[in-house]
Computed example of a mutant assay.
Amino acid sequence: MNIVIDTERLITEVRLRPPLWDLSCELYKDRDAKLNAWFEVCQEIIPNFVDLPDKDKELVGK
């Protein structure tokens, strides 16, 4: 699987989700909130992320 990720877009999407980076955010320590935020980021930067097989989704996470 070969996915090219636009670094600037990735940074923008992460910045839109404070639980991923803002220590003062109430949800920063919430594991589920972080997982959901990362899932949203992946949906935004990877075409058809939801339709990928689970193995490919795991590769994206790495």
Rank of each mutant, 00 (worst) to 15 (best):
7 T>K: 13
7 T>I: 09
8 E>N: 10
8 E>P: 00
8 E>F: 05
10 L>D: 01
11 I>G: 01
11 I>C: 05
12 T>N: 04
13 E>W: 01
13 E>G: 02
14 V>L: 11
14 V>E: 06
15 R>Q: 10
15 R>L: 09
15 R>W: 02
15 R>K: 11
17 R>E: 04
19 P>H: 04
19 P>M: 07
20 L>M: 06
20 L>E: 11
21 W>K: 13
21 W>S: 15
21 W>C: 14
21 W>Y: 13
21 W>M: 15
22 D>C: 09
22 D>I: 04
22 D>R: 09
22 D>E: 12
24 S>T: 11
24 S>C: 02
25 C>A: 11
25 C>W: 00
26 E>D: 10
26 E>K: 12
26 E>G: 01
26 E>W: 02
26 E>M: 03
28 Y>D: 05
29 K>N: 14
29 K>F: 03
29 K>P: 00
29 K>T: 12
29 K>D: 12
30 D>M: 04
30 D>C: 10
31 R>W: 01
31 R>D: 12
32 D>I: 06
32 D>K: 11
33 A>E: 07
34 K>S: 14
34 K>R: 15
35 L>V: 04
35 L>A: 09
36 N>D: 10
37 A>W: 00
37 A>G: 06
37 A>I: 03
37 A>P: 01
38 W>E: 06
38 W>A: 02
38 W>I: 07
38 W>C: 12
39 F>V: 01
39 F>I: 03
39 F>L: 05
39 F>G: 02
39 F>N: 10
39 F>P: 00
40 E>S: 13
40 E>F: 00
41 V>A: 07
42 C>M: 08
42 C>P: 00
43 Q>W: 00
43 Q>A: 01
43 Q>S: 04
43 Q>D: 04
44 E>H: 01
44 E>G: 00
46 I>C: 07
46 I>S: 02
47 P>V: 14
47 P>R: 15
47 P>A: 15
48 N>R: 11
48 N>I: 04
48 N>G: 10
48 N>S: 13
49 F>V: 13
49 F>Y: 15
49 F>Q: 14
50 V>N: 08
50 V>K: 11
51 D>F: 02
52 L>A: 11
53 P>W: 05
53 P>L: 12
53 P>S: 14
53 P>I: 10
54 D>C: 04
54 D>G: 04
54 D>Y: 08
54 D>E: 15
55 K>W: 08
55 K>I: 12
55 K>S: 14
56 D>E: 15
56 D>C: 08
56 D>T: 13
56 D>M: 11
57 K>D: 07
57 K>R: 12
57 K>G: 06
58 E>I: 12
58 E>Y: 08
58 E>C: 09
59 L>G: 07
59 L>S: 09
59 L>W: 00
60 V>C: 12
60 V>G: 02
61 G>V: 08
61 G>I: 06
61 G>T: 05
